[in-house]
Simulated assay, not measured.
Amino acid sequence: MTEHETQVSEFKSKSGVKRIYSAFFYSMEGFKSAWRSEHAFRQELMLAIPAAIVALLLPVPAVHKLVLIGVLVLVLIVELINSAIEAVVDRISFERHPLSKNAKDFGSAAVCLALLLAAASWAVIVLPLFLG
């Protein structure tokens, strides 16, 4: 291999429509796996679904509904990324290591920030409806 060539994984997807088709089914497998094996994802999804319905029913502008639902989706996205980080770390080794701990803690901190943003967004948009 020359200096300017890069290795490409044999698992790298193809291009074109087939790539889009495959990516969709890989995503569905990811959702199924997260549902089966990730307790936090299940809990957050079971909170996000009714909350999204509530957001749609609230007497607020459409952009506020989008924000309320968007922050819920953001929590799910960050949780999936956190789960992916944890899976990769565990794949490498179950042995305790400071860098493994950092990776997992960083992912957890990202989820925490997403949850705080969601809570703040809901508070700013929904509380005024009840307070006056």
Score class of each variant (00 low, 15 high):
126 V>D: 03
62 A>H: 00
13 S>C: 11
122 W>S: 02
21 Y>F: 12
89 V>Y: 02
19 R>E: 10
132 G>E: 03
59 P>I: 12
73 V>T: 12
131 L>A: 03
83 S>Y: 00
126 V>T: 06
80 L>I: 12
43 Q>C: 05
41 F>S: 06
109 A>F: 11
71 V>E: 04
37 S>F: 12
8 V>D: 05
11 F>S: 08
95 E>I: 08
1 M>Y: 13
10 E>R: 15
25 F>I: 05
3 E>M: 07
17 V>Y: 15
85 I>P: 04
105 D>M: 13
50 P>S: 06
58 L>D: 02
68 L>D: 10
125 I>H: 02
39 H>Q: 13
31 F>S: 03
114 A>S: 09
132 G>M: 01
29 E>C: 07
32 K>T: 02
85 I>K: 07
33 S>C: 01
92 I>R: 01
88 V>L: 09
98 P>M: 13
25 F>R: 01
66 L>D: 07
118 A>S: 11
86 E>A: 02
118 A>Q: 14
40 A>K: 04
27 S>H: 05
1 M>P: 15
90 D>M: 04
129 L>M: 06
73 V>A: 12
59 P>C: 13
45 L>T: 11
98 P>G: 10
15 S>D: 12
123 A>P: 00
96 R>M: 06
4 H>L: 13
84 A>D: 02
94 F>S: 14
89 V>G: 03
125 I>R: 04
37 S>T: 12
68 L>W: 00
33 S>N: 07
102 N>M: 10
124 V>Y: 09
77 I>Q: 09
77 I>N: 02
31 F>C: 04
129 L>D: 03
42 R>H: 03
81 I>V: 15
86 E>R: 01
90 D>C: 03
132 G>N: 03
131 L>S: 09
77 I>F: 11
70 G>Q: 04
9 S>R: 11
86 E>M: 00
69 I>S: 05
95 E>F: 03
48 A>N: 11
105 D>T: 11
111 V>Y: 03
121 S>E: 01
104 K>E: 02
108 S>V: 01
